[in-house]
Design a binder for these strands. Structure first.
Lengths: 113, 113
DNA sequence: ATTCTATGTATAGGAAACTTATGTATATTT
DNA sequence: AAATATACATAAGTTTCCTATACATAGAAT
């Protein structure tokens, strides 16, 4: 995704959050959206994205719907019902993760004096 | 480290930050410290920690110093000079990462209207 | 005309990080 | 005597991701 290893493990959560927000999206659209939101800092590669989408579909998190636009194929993905529930869990995990990382990086001073 | 995949890729940064803060630490101490700081949410496994420490040492990020305490071995690690510089970069990357993830999860409303 | 860039999906091969399980060894608690 | 805590270590396997490649259409540039 970038030079930093930190994004490892966050792709599924990113995909699910974007789909929760936008209803349905296709793969290429996801890569562009992420690029815009992160101001070019995070580029999702196809080699990561498409296998991830296929896996989420196989797990019943996503549904797919094929369309033809300008004579080109698009596969629109959207969250299933269980996918919506799972997204809530993932986002809670992400919040915990961010909070924990901030605790590690910016530790509170010891108040026992 | 835990059930969440999100921590993947953050171990090196965590180690380096803790060493920057505490001067020198040994492996087991790192696992316990992280457990306390994250209130039990993040458990670093030995299978992840020790190979990571060895790799950081091989890369010249860490120096090691062996001590015997209570007849048990301890390997104290501390940042080298280049390790200190690299830690600054890693922490900046972590801040970017957290900022980007927050932009994705908590997008700003569109202000063009 | 042809080549490059953008749009759009897909997979094979490999690297890297992590988990699980196991091993060794001493000290303390039950 | 057995379990737990302290302390380090590695082998085998899984997962995630990147690089490279492939196919296909459309538009822009040369």
């Amino acid at each position: 995704m970038k030079n930093s290893q930190l994004y490892k493990g966050s792709l599924n959560t990113i995909i699910m959050k974007l789909l929760e927000e936008n209803g349905k999206m296709y793969g290429y659209e996801i890569t562009q959206k992420v690029k815009i939101i992160t101001q070019g800092e995070l580029n999702i590669t196809e080699g990561a994205l498409y296998p991830a989408l296929h896996k989420l579909e196989a797990e019943g998190i996503l549904d797919v719907e094929i369309e033809r636009v300008d004579n080109r194929m698009r596969k629109y993905y959207k969250l299933t019902e269980s996918g919506q529930k799972e997204t809530i869990n993932r986002l809670a995990e992400l919040e915990d993760f961010i909070r924990n990382m901030q605790s590690l990086v910016n530790p509170k001073p010891n108040l026992e004096f």
